[in-house]
Structure formats: structure tokens, C-alpha cells
Write a protein that binds this DNA or RNA. Sequence first.
DNA 1: CGTCAAGTTGACTAATCTCAAAGAGCGTGG
DNA 2: CCACGCTCTTTGAGATTAGTCAACTTGACG
Lengths: 279, 279
Amino acid sequence: MSDNNYSTNNQHQGNDKLFSTENSTQNSEPVSQNSDKRCSKGLLPSSCNTCSLSNLCLPIAVTQNDISQLEDIIKQGKIIDRGEHIFSEHTPFRSCFAVRSGSIKTYVVSEEGEEQVTGFYLPGEIIGMDSMNTDAYSCSAKALEKSSVCEIPFDRFETLATQIPTLQHHFFQLMSKEIKESRQLSMLLSKNTAEERIASLLLSLSERFKRRKLSPTQFRLPMPRNDIGNYLGLAVETVSRVFTRFQKSGLITVQGREVTINDLDKLKDMLKHQTKCLS
Amino acid sequence: MSDNNYSTNNQHQGNDKLFSTENSTQNSEPVSQNSDKRCSKGLLPSSCNTCSLSNLCLPIAVTQNDISQLEDIIKQGKIIDRGEHIFSEHTPFRSCFAVRSGSIKTYVVSEEGEEQVTGFYLPGEIIGMDSMNTDAYSCSAKALEKSSVCEIPFDRFETLATQIPTLQHHFFQLMSKEIKESRQLSMLLSKNTAEERIASLLLSLSERFKRRKLSPTQFRLPMPRNDIGNYLGLAVETVSRVFTRFQKSGLITVQGREVTINDLDKLKDMLKHQTKCLS
DNA sequence: CGTCAAGTTGACTAATCTCAAAGAGCGTGG
DNA sequence: CCACGCTCTTTGAGATTAGTCAACTTGACG
């Protein structure tokens, strides 16, 4: 297997090594521990151009000039410490955020104070698109580890989107994708067993790591079992048992949050009879 | 209760009476039974202006002039017979559709040919937004009863949206809402019992009928139990049993697909401890 | 090295599914 | 206008998955 050629992505949390080769400019995390730090335009010449994630979060077809306009409105590289919030449910909606490094979970809280995890977001993915039709965020977003995000002020973005058709088009696509993925989660939850749900999550993570040129078969779960269970509608105990079962059958190797997928095809086969898995 | 003042919405399927008072111009269904019929511009001067649903599917703030531009690109009042498709999964994505009358279900089919219902759409709601990021529809849409839809060719719509900011804004909102609702479905499926799921669906329908000035407490279910179960991740038998239980407890009265909600508050209370119900 | 959070494991319970069969409703054609 | 056949719906009994409760293990970190 050629997996060994991938750069490892299982360092301890918050380690910026992950991105050091990807961001040629100095906007990776270590510069400041201050969670409120922002790269104000000009000071740190961070650029969407040189960001390796731009193929994920930016429209491919955008021109050089368009990108500078985007950079003008995007506040890049805000650092979020583990456990800190990017935004909270019910607070005024102002911006979407692109994850630049680390990992984010979104969740809502019921009247009884019970938490429901609604999603996990990795670098290159965008948070907040479910809040665009209201004045307030419809979920909270919290960093699962030390992370950094780029803020996209929405009113300015909307204006820009009317001026740059490809930008509008791209954003429509991103939102459409979000709808589709949420649909897929619904399907997963409505029809599938615990094992299938977890297989699906593992494959989803695998795919997303792969997109970022990281190993699709060996990675660190950014979230605790608790959050996995919450997200997939399973009890923590069930999650734990399924991991154990998977390990015993040789499908995967787990060591805490470190996961190695030993048989990717077999994992995919588990979802064969489904319409679609998570993405 | 003043519910009796609502116009009834439980006639047999395909009856256009539902909309005869709402569309002052002659674009309601009976004109032609040809399912391929389209109101070509000019022939039938159907208008988004006079459509009672425009407050649901059109941006509020759009001006008179904007509406005419919209009307130029929208093909209005296409008739779909019960069981007919509006579009099929994997066929080229060209248009979104606004439901004008009747009801539509969307679904995907797994490799084994198993169907998974992904949504129910009522007048004023828009189908196809989950396909905008691909060249092909990501689900199929089929009429649950005789229905009519307005076709929104997407490429022309995108162009128009760049010219009319409020239109773009409105569409962002619609898509955001779609994401949110799908999220809510996921949550419903991941945490709630059969009873809660069905209560949530009933409330969702109730709310949507109410928006259309129809009775929120007395309506006809547009879909069979089978589809309800499929959508909510329950066996048909479970759906049936829950309806029976609800009836026995006096919460609702069911007679086939006719439903009367006797205690709306109690129904809502069932979802009290949740983050949110369907919408 | 002690503490606390996270993860694992076992035994029991409960909700929902599956299988099976009967009953009701609706459209079609005679 | 009614009978037939189809689909939809209901109901029962038993099987199974996942949840709950409780205890124990592991690991991170000061």
C-alpha cells in the first residue's frame, strides 16, 4: 500500500504542522495563541491564492481579480482554541466561516439543555450555511481542537456574489451539496444499523482526508465517541461496541482515536445496499 | 373552534377547486389533461403576481418589474398526473420546480432498487435545490396526486439572480431553510421515538397547511402510510400502530387519510423536549 | 501519583422490526 | 351500479437491535 506516502495527520490536536506545507504564507496557527487574533488585512498577507484549501472552498473559475475582491471581505485565519465557540445558536447571524485547520462541531441545545450534534467540519468546509435565512445562527459551532477559520461576512459576500456570477454559482453549489449531505445523513439514520452508520462515518472521514491529500486509511478521529454517538443517533456504548466488533473482525484497527482502516473495500461493501453514504 | 371557517382541503385528489379561488387568471389545472402541457408565454397569461403562493416561493421585496422578468423565464402550470415524474434521479439537471398545487414526493433508489423517500413538497415549496451542484438530479420527484408545477430553468435563473439581488438573497434563504429542515429531520430520526416522529410530521403538515390559509387541524394526508414510514425511518406497521394509539388517546381522529388534530397543544408538547420539529 | 474524563464491557430491558394474515377502500370494467 | 381485484391499512405474535444502568479500565494531565 502506498498510504505511507501521505503526510501523517494524527499529531496531537492543534498542531499546525498539518498545514505548514500547505500555506506558504505565515498564516498558520502558531503565531499567536490569542484566540481572538485576526489577521487584519495587510498585516499578515495571508492569501486565498496560496491556500491549499481554495479548491475546496473557493470557486475554481474565479479569476485573480475576483480572488482579491474576496480577500478584501474575508477575515482570514482567526484562531479558535479547543472548546471555544465560533458562534452560538440564537446570536445574530453575520458570517459564514470556512474551516482552515482543525475541526469544528456544530450542535443545537434542546430546552432541557440536551445537546444534539448536527455536524463535523474539517478544513476546506464551510459552516453557517444553515443560518442564512434567519437573523440568528441556528446552531452553535465549537472547536473540537485548536482550529483556525476564515470569516465570510455575509452581507458583503452577497453583494460580491451579485457582481461575480461564478461566485454566486459556486455558493449555490456549496449549499446544494450541504442539502444533499444532510439528506444523506437522514437516510443513514432512518434505515441503517449501528454498524452501517459508523462505517459510513468512517468512510466519510476517509474521503474528506483524502481530498486534502492526507491518508484515507489512517487518521485520528477529531471527535470523542460521545459526539459520534450523538451525531449518529447511537448510545456511546453502542459506538464503543461497534468499534470493538470492527476491530475484532479485522476491518479496522483502533487505538483510542487513532483509526486504521484495514479493508476499505469491505467497509464500502457494508454500505453497498444503500442509496448513498455520508460525504 | 373557528377551524370551520377554513376552506376544506380534503377533496379527492387532483381537484383543482383548491386553487380556483386563488388564481384569478386561468392557469389552474382543468384546462388540459395533457401532462406535457405548458403555458407558453403569451397564450395563457398566468402570472406570479396573482398567484396566492407567491409570498411563499417569491421574494417579498421583488418589484413589479422584477416579477415580469421572472415570469419570462418561468414556465408556469405544468400538469403532472398522479404517479408521474417531474424529474428522475441521474437525468440532467435543468430546472428547479415550484409546486403550485397537489403534492410531490422526492425519493432516491438504492442499488437493490429499494426506495427511500427524501421529502414531501406542498404548494409554494420548491423542488430540486439539492441537485444544483451536479449535472444530474440527485433524486426523483413524483406526484402523489394530480399536481401542477412551475418550472424554473436554472441557468436563466442564475443569470437573473445576479441582476436582482433580492432574488439571489431570497434563493439563498430558501436553500438555507432547506438545509435547516433537513438537519431537523436528521435530528428527529436520530433521537426520537416513533410517536414523536409522527407527531412531528403531523405538526409540520399542519403548519404548512396553515401557511396556505387552510385548516391546520383538519386535512388529508397526501401520502400513503408506506411513504410516511419510509420517510420517517419506521415500518409501515409502526406508523399504523401509532396512528391507532393517537386516536385511542383522543389526540387525533383518523379515517384513512383524513386527519383531525383534536389537541394541537398536546401534540406540540410531545416535542417539547426536542430541539426542533420538522417544518 | 491521584483525579477526572473518556472509553469499554456485561446484563438486562424496551422499542421497533419482521412475518403473517385479515380487513378496508378505491378504481375499473362489466 | 355493483363486483372484482388491487393496493393500502390494520392487528397480532415473536424476534432482534440498540438503549439503559452499572461497574470497571484506560489515558491525559497537573
